[in-house]
Design a protein around this nucleic acid. Structure first.
Lengths: 338, 338
DNA sequence: TGAAATAATGTAACCGGTTACATACACACG
DNA sequence: CGTGTGTATGTAACCGGTTACATTATTTCA
């Protein structure tokens, strides 16, 4: 019994069942009628031989991979757990498989993309994981893509799914000013170039403008959406010679809020009595911080689901919606003084 | 310019460069020397044509997919964010791509596995995502697999990576008894059949035995490693006619601890003054709960990395270590009374 | 100087599916 | 009874790479 080493092929099945490979293929894919007795015979033979079609061969022949790619900037955040959950759910329901990779614009050393037309049928692209040049190239090749938490660059009509950042931040800052009487609010930015960070800043500035409040450049810090960075930056801010007066902090996102609240606590500055702190995202932790964090709820799982649906629609040649802006909602907890 | 619709192939490159496809293939894979001038010409032509080899064709020819599969039970937990992070890091470094799927023993309706030998070169299997029958079948086919948070069933010498559950739980319960004088400790189990849950229970019982304490069956609850389930179960427990006395709760994992602490808070039962609460995992949240949660730190990201390394070792025909038990560490915080 | 070894390249079979096209057969209809 | 229509099936080309084997040119060495 010197088996040919490799696995059982469609030809083995065909031979065993006494039919041609075409008939087997047709039966497997249900794309042509097969007589009842042949069907039964095939069913039996396939079970007996434990036959499973080789994905690569099928992909080569059909020029479809049945794979959806997801490109993330990194996975260093519980945020991605939610996003992936939403994506995975839809992808699985629709009979696709999921290829996950990380990549970042700044990865100059990486020659080629881990996923792309050679690999997957379509691709979800998170934020700055891919630069405009690559984006343009792939779009020119008619490669189906949906952007997540990023709007398309000028001239590239790519569908995208993101969240409402500006108005929510505006309202949150309004709340700090109107309800709690705050006047000197620190703005903590996310990573440079990050779109969420950009729109949150615009919302922040608009709110200040609307109340005729100036934005003191000394009160602009850079938290990078990272708790450790935020901790260090805030520490340095507080340990300056002359600390500018401030009565509230918009931390950019919840991760940064965690770092900020820790250093405030270490310095004996009370939240919310001495200073109000607000975040963005409403991640799992937010409600459990001390005090519970006032923030903006981002429907991250829903973003994942929606983006996956859009992409799979694209693959079925459905015209996509250009831009989907999912609504966000202010969550008032203790940390702002409420 | 009526292009043949599909993408540029290795034959296009060969023609354009005036060499044979074999030479192109050799140059791309660096598995045979190519003269300097041909190399330069190819470099130029490939850049010009933006050539990227088709993964499916290569997979078919080499019978390697360059893909690692991960099978999870679900993604409803920040736990998986950490696990995937560790896995992804190693997989990327080693030049593989990552296919993520969810599956569960109980999914009877799903006919075939989303990932397997037809799909990937090897596979990481988390806990109960795959049943013994499938496991045995795949192992019989010499399919490279590594189990995560699960030891192999009898007779199947599969490598596995998991954490030290029993001793850590034992020490944690010791601590409750010895340091804080607890005598009536509630045991909250995880999902039935889950191996972590099993060993934690063993550790729990051993600790009680070692102190000559009986385990009151009334104090055994089922939290399913889920905050909502734990909340409801604990609620029902507290709303019984005659609530059995208790002075501490081992919640099984941190997720359950969250649910338990919430209902205790609602009922006006103080932690740790009235009752001590301890968890397991030390997830991101644990340190931020009120009070901060005493728990066991599980090196989840490290588990992911290690499992991925083992699997990739297997693919390179390295003999794997049979069972890798990563150490855990007790983290004492406020919730136990410390 | 000629035989043998070495280096660079080409030819064509092969991986395991899908599918266009051909074929064979049954049945209906004028 | 010949022709037409429809159904079930087979044959073989094709998808786009890899690689065994053959071939040619160049160098080495007895």
């Amino acid at each position: 019994m010197t088996r040919k080493s490799t696995s059982v092929t469609i030809r083995d099945v065909a031979r065993q069942a006494g039919v041609s490979v075409a008939t087997v293929s047709r039966y497997i894919n249900h794309n042509a009628p097969v007589s009842e007795d042949v069907a039964q015979k095939l069913e039996q033979v396939m079970a007996e031989l434990q036959y499973v079609p080789q994905a690569a061969a099928r992909q080569l022949a059909t020029r479809r991979t049945n794979l959806i790619g997801v490109l993330l900037t990194n996975m260093d955040n519980d945020f991605f757990s939610l996003l992936l959950r939403g994506i995975e759910e839809v992808v699985r329901e629709q009979g696709y498989n999921l290829l996950v990779a990380t990549y970042h614009v700044s990865n100059r050393w990486q020659s080629s993309l881990p996923i792309g037309p050679h690999n997957v049928d379509g691709m979800l692209i998170f934020a700055d994981s891919l630069d405009d040049k690559n984006l343009a190239f792939l779009h020119h090749r008619d490669f189906p893509m949906v952007l997540i938490h990023r709007t398309p660059p000028a001239g590239l009509p790519l569908p995208c799914v993101t969240i409402e950042n500006k108005a929510a931040t505006h309202r949150l800052v309004d709340h700090l000013i109107d309800v709690h009487g705050k006047r000197r609010i620190i703005l903590m930015r996310g990573e440079a170039g990050q779109e969420d960070s950009y729109w949150r800043e615009i919302g922040f500035r608009d709110a200040l403008d609307a109340h005729g409040l100036p934005l003191d450049p000394q009160l602009i810090l850079k938290g990078d959406f990272d708790r450790h960075v935020a901790y260090q930056v805030m520490k340095r801010f507080l340990e300056q010679e002359a600390v500018p007066p401030f009565d509230a902090i918009f931390t950019g996102d919840d991760e940064a809020a965690i770092g900020v609240m820790r250093i405030l606590n270490e310095k004996g500055i009370r939240v919310p009595e001495d200073v109000a702190v607000v975040g963005f995202d409403d991640m799992n932790l937010a409600a459990f911080l001390t005090p519970p964090l006032t923030t903006v709820r981002a429907p991250t799982e829903q973003v994942g689901r929606t983006a996956a649906q859009q992409l799979i629609g694209l693959l079925a040649k459905n015209a996509p919606q250009d831009i989907i802006l999912l609504p966000t909602e202010i969550i008032l907890r203790r940390s702002c003084g409420c």
